[in-house]
Design a protein around this nucleic acid. Structure first.
Lengths: 175, 175
DNA sequence: TTCATTGCTTCGCGTTGCAAATTAATTAAC
DNA sequence: GTTAATTAATTTGCAACGCGAAGCAATGAA
């Protein structure tokens, strides 16, 4: 059957596009992708314990610890011990960290939303229905997911500027 | 608008599902994801020079060199100098390497294809049309992409290269 | 008190990923 | 035909990932 191949290629294209955009964001913010991912997760969920953060990102706790070390050094994240249970450590995004995400360049979902909402209502419904179908086929419907296509950034501000203000060690990952 | 949020969540779910499946494949084969990616690219395109391989995967040449070092140590890939231009080095998947990919667990696209082809024709067309729309919105329609959802493993419907040495199952190679 | 569990960090190791420097082969210029 | 520039891959050095195992402190249970 020809159409299933078409569908697969299209899905692959979509995934590839988001991946490339993630790498672009990475360059713009000066953060690595795991670092961006971490900031994004914190922005969405608010302060999380290291364990929760690890689970949320499908990484080992030790991995998250080291990522947080670097984010803390850049003052984008602050560690805070829990009062009720002093074993727990909360990772909190700093003001600076949230600022950084806000100033990230226009995101893929902005583009998507703009064009999507220009479409007639019946077409929107058709796309949602189709995506629902695909998600179900892949057994993905139970996965929790934020309404965003790329790792970083939110908000309307269309500021496209590479930040100079994180200098620590040479951290420019290029990808 | 509510529906654009729905669409974004669904897309994110789909991407997340393929990512999780990739990690599963990685564990099963004993290869890292870049290594799997490399093997997969070679399986699809046949022998490639290091430079082509790097471009295909959006990586620096030096990175690919080191990945190939490890794949060669595992005897999954063989290096071969070009006769016509002795600067060039071709990376060729070995029989063992192709075997490994073949013996990988059932892939996501297998699941997808099976269920997709059970759908009535009009529904298939609807999904392809919707995906086409999304791909276009994201500017992804020009990206070249193989008809597969996960990095590893082969699907028998896509033999772009005739590996005359297929046949047989059951040789699990764990690094 | 004692013991097991939980949550995070530390340590060691291998893998990615890149830029810069290096080597070798090809091509262009003189 | 020698010299110079270009191209292709490797080597080197360095930071970041990613994980398991070991360690430590706080909590909970016996």
């Amino acid at each position: 059957m020809e159409k299933s191949q078409d569908a697969l290629v299209l899905l692959r294209q979509i995934i590839r596009a988001t991946d490339l955009h993630d790498k672009h964001l990475s360059r713009m913010t000066g953060l690595t992708m795991p670092q961006l991912m971490t900031m994004q997760t914190l922005r969405i969920n608010g302060p999380l314990t290291i364990g929760m953060l690890a689970k949320e990102m499908n990484l080992a706790q030790a991995t998250v610890t080291s990522i947080l070390d670097r984010l803390e050094r850049k003052k984008l994240v602050r560690r805070e011990r829990s009062n009720t249970d002093k074993r727990k450590v909360l990772a909190c995004p700093t003001e600076e960290g949230l600022e950084l995400l806000k100033s990230a360049p226009a995101t893929l979902q902005d583009t998507f939303i703009r064009q999507f909402e220009d479409m007639p209502d019946w077409e929107q419904s058709m796309i949602v229905a189709a995506l629902e179908h695909v998600s179900h086929i892949l057994g993905a419907h139970h996965l929790d997911a934020a309404p965003m296509l790329d790792i970083g950034a939110l908000d309307r501000t269309t500021e496209t500027r590479p930040p100079e203000y994180l200098r620590d060690t040479g951290d420019h990952h290029k990808n």
